[in-house]
Structures are given as C-alpha cells and as structure tokens.
Design a protein around this nucleic acid. Structure first.
Length: 477
RNA sequence: CGGCGUGUGGCUCAGCUUGGUAGAGCGCUACGUUCGGGACGUAGAGGCCGCAGGUUCAAAUCCUGUCACGCCGACCA
C-alpha cells in the first residue's frame, strides 16, 4: 500500500526516463524553476552536494599546484572577437549587456560563456619572462550560455562550474597539464561520484572552439545515453598568438606561451542522479551526501526513545555527517522521504531496540538491513559507508560494460543503435564525412577516441576505407 | 529556432466543447488518538483561473497576442 503511493509520486524510469529525472530532481528538492527560462534555484539539498563536489575537487586541484582566482563576468566584445574559432563557436549563445543604467554602452559587454579571453588578457599583462611561467589558475564561478532547450542541471542558461586556465613555456608542458587535469577529473568521478568514465580525445568535429585538442571523460547514464562529464583542452599557442602573450626565454628570445583550459560543471549532479538513482528517488554516493546517516526514532513520544536517538546521532556525528528526523511524520513516511533524498544510510531506533541494546541500519542503494548492537554502531556505519561507495562504482561499471557494444560494419552499427542504447565501439577512418553521415542517419555522435585503443577491424565502420582509430559512439545528453 | 503539449489554492488535477455565485483530492494550521515501510478523527485557513488586450449585459470558459514550463528535433557543458 505504502509502496504504491511512492510509485505514483515518482514516474518509473522504465516508463519515461526524462519524466523520472524531473520527478527525482523535484522530489529530492535539489532545484526549483524561476521566472527566467533556464535559470534555476539550486536549493539547499542540491547546493550542499555542489559544495561537497567543490571541496573535494578543489583539494585535488591544489595538490597539483592550482591557485584560485576570480575574473570579471563581463567581456568586452572586442576582446571576445580576438580568436576567430572561439568567437564563432560561442557567438550564437552569448548574452549581451548593452546599457549601463540608462546610458547605452560604447562597447557592449558579453556575459562570460567561458573565460579564455579574459585569462588571455590577464596573462598578456602578467607574463613577461620564463620566470613568470607556468601560470596555473582556476576559478569557481557561473557562466551564461543562452541555450534554446534547457534541462535541470544538464543544460541551464546560467550554470556553476570551475574553469582552469594555464600558461606554459613549452608545448610539452601544456600537453602534460592537459592530460594531468583529465586524470584528476576521471579519478574524481570514479572515487568520489562513483561514476566510471571513458577517457579519450574528441574528434576535430567535437572539439572545443579554438582548441588544438580536446580531451574528455564520458560517462554512461542509466538510460544508455552518454554524458560528457569533464573536458580538458590543449590550446597550443593559438590563443597566445591571437592575444599576443609572449615571454622572454633563457636565451633572451621572445616565445609564445602554450595554454590549456579545463572545466567541469553542476552537470555532474545530473550525472549522479542518472547513474545511481532508482524508482525510489535519488541515491547519493556517501562522499557527496550532505547527510550520510539519518537517525529515525520509532515511537518517538515514548519515554526515552528521543533522547536515545539523539544520543546515537551525536555519536554518529563524530564519524560521519549524521542527522536525525524528529518531525511528527510516521516512520514509513520518513523512510520514503530519506530514500527520495538519497541519504545513504538510515538508522532505525525504537523501544524494542533500546531494550535489546541494538538498532537497525538500512542501506539506500540495495536496501539491505542490518541488526547492529549499539556498541558497534560507529564501526558498522563507517564500514557500510565505505563499502557502499565502492559497490556503487562497481555496480555502475557493470551497467556500463553491459551496455557497451562492438560493431564491425555498418549493418551491425545500425542494428545496435536501432535496438539498444549505450556505447558502441567501432573503427573510424578519421574523416569527418563519416561522422556527419552517422549522425545524420542515427542521431549518434562520436563521444571520444579512447586512450585504450583496440583493433576491432581494419576498416572504417562507415566507409570501409582503412581505419585509423577506435571510437566510442553514442546518443548524448 | 521548428513540431507537439500544458498553465486554475502549496501540489496533482476537474470545470472550458455549449459563457451565468470557482471545485476535488493531497498538503497546510490547531487539538486528540497513533507510530517497525507514506496512520486517523474533528475543526479551520487558503484562488482577481500565467499575463495583456478584445468580444459580451456577463469570460476560467470564446478571439488575438504574449510569457513560462515539459517532451521530441537542430545547437551546445
């Protein structure tokens, strides 16, 4: 009976995945719409997740020598226009400020869609000598891209992100930094978000506007669609030439710097929802769960129950992010509520438990229940949180592997995408015409050319000419 | 930006075809009984029907426009 109502509240993912996603976002109170299309309120439950992502990612950045800075949100039009590919890539989706107060501006200002141009302007003034290199900066901020179609966390007009921008003396250093940051993202996704990713390089068609090469981590969502979850770009000296960023080297010669940029966004929260969520709602990996354990007293008005529950909560606060639900809802209500919010562990404590000196712990991800003596509480909670973090990654990896296929020719390729959703590995000749043809026919794009290459066949899946690369293909968000 | 759909108490929706005193369930507030998977009783509060024009004696309902949200495409993190 109770289950029935729950199912009504959240659309089953098998029935309508998009609706399921929206239901979870709303029911878990992660986000709200506002009167401006594509601009969202990230609610306390959602923002707390973002703060945990920020904190743990930022620590990893700093271990590699990154320093945080803050640059303005406005870019003068003339500055944006300096790098040709870059401006062409972003022009269709920038928002413009044309007035200051009542006065029209002499030059309109774009609201940053990304800050390469500002960092270039900054580095141009800061970097003079090889002694000023490398510059390794990052900023946490929001950017604006005037998207036509918006979706909570996955595509909004304003979104939160971090963007790292570096300048180096040599091409080699820039390439190393590009790959280093990609590895930081990949490691973060797997170890913190429990999301397995494919690391690889984007094809020229899919690479960032203005980049020499773009690297990406690609994750597979529960519905079999791909989500680009972080990117790292090597700009070579293209921006340096457009913005005239030069330094004097040890031999007293002028050289252009080599630059990189790398970013990840609140989209990661969307990925967590779509990789780990189920028909009861959100399911958070412990490392990013704002509340990791919720204590639920049973018959809380009975003598001694509430005080015992609070005592347990205080104990758990020393080893985890713990909370207690003392609202006067029924226990069943609270169970469902905590599940919708994705809280990893639930501790039930009632009169019967208190008498027996134990409690019940229930895992959110697989709903396994454990009877635990109160002496062992902290140890068991710590152990379960650790185990859950690991097993959620394993489960997501098994799901991804199960939905990763191989196609050796166009018939197989067609059949796979017509019958299934997931990653399809296939060989490619390197010609954009084949990418275009595949996209045209199957609405599928190249996700990346993975670092871990396999030789599946000698010829391109599309045109049968000699193959150069194995590519992951998929329908993308 | 193209196609389809939806805007009515906090939420989900009915009412619109055929204009005539704004409805239901849930939620909310108070009190009481409950409490191990969304409990129940009693009493209450809450809406110029997305917005702007128009038609009409009279508009939630008909017409025009506009904005927003959702889904599917194209573009993108």
């Amino acid at each position: 009976m109770a289950e029935k109502k729950l199912v009504e509240a959240i659309t089953a993912m098998e029935e309508d995945f998009a609706q399921w996603y929206t239901d979870v976002v709303k029911k878990a109170e992660l986000l709200d719409y506002t009167s401006v299309k594509g601009c969202m309120v990230i609610r306390p439950a959602g923002y707390a997740i973002w703060e945990l992502i920020q904190k743990q990612m930022d620590e990893r950045f700093k271990e590699t020598g990154v320093q945080n800075v803050y640059l303005p949100m406005f870019i003068p039009e003339s500055l944006l226009n300096k790098e040709k590919d870059h401006v062409e890539g972003f022009a269709p989706e920038v928002a413009w400020v044309t007035h200051g107060g009542l006065q029209p501006l002499q030059e309109r200002l774009c609201v940053r869609p990304t800050s390469e141009t500002l960092f270039c302007d900054y580095y141009k003034n800061t970097v003079h000598s090889y002694r000023d290199l490398p510059q390794i900066c990052n900023q946490w901020c929001s950017v604006v891209r005037w998207e036509k179609e918006t979706r909570p966390f996955l595509r909004s007009r304003e979104f939160l992100w971090q963007e790292g921008h570096t300048a180096h003396a040599t091409a080699k250093e820039a390439e190393e930094r590009t790959l280093q940051m990609l590895n930081v993202y990949a490691d973060f996704c797997e170890q913190v978000l429990a999301i397995p990713v494919i690391k690889g390089r984007k094809t020229d068609k899919e690479k960032f506007a203005g980049a020499e090469s773009t690297y990406t981590i690609e994750a597979l969502m529960h519905d079999g669609k791909a989500l680009q979850s972080g990117t790292s770009h090597n700009f070579g000296d293209g921006f340096a030439k457009a913005f005239d960023i030069q330094y004097t080297d040890k031999n007293n010669k002028l050289q252009y710097v080599h630059q990189t940029s790398w970013g990840s966004t609140t989209r990661l929260i969307g990925a967590v929802i779509m990789v780990h969520g189920d028909n009861s709602g959100l399911c958070l990996p412990p490392k990013i769960a704002p509340v990791q354990v919720m204590v639920i007293p049973i018959q809380q008005k009975k003598e001694g129950v509430l005080s015992k529950a609070e005592e347990i909560c205080d104990r758990l606060k020393k080893v985890s992010r713990a909370g207690i639900d003392i609202t006067d809802k029924s226990p069943g209500w609270k169970f469902s509520e905590q599940e919708m919010r994705g809280i990893p562990l639930r501790v039930e404590i009632g009169p019967k438990d208190i008498e027996a000196g134990k409690c019940i712990i229930c895992r959110r991800d697989n709903r396994e229940k454990y009877e635990v003596s109160l002496e062992e509480l902290e140890n068991k909670v710590t152990e379960l949180l650790d185990r859950m973090q690991v097993e959620m990654l394993e489960r997501a990896r098994a799901h991804r592997d199960k939905h990763t296929y191989v196609a050796k020719n166009m018939d197989e390729f067609r059949r796979l995408f017509n019958e299934k959703t997931g990653f399809v590995k296939a060989m490619w000749c390197g010609d954009q015409a084949c990418e275009d043809a595949i996209k045209e026919e199957l609405a599928v794009t190249s996700r990346c050319m993975p670092f871990e290459q396999e030789n599946l066949s000698e010829v391109c899946v599309c045109c049968n000419k000699p193959a150069k690369k194995m590519v992951y293909w998929g329908k993308a968000y």
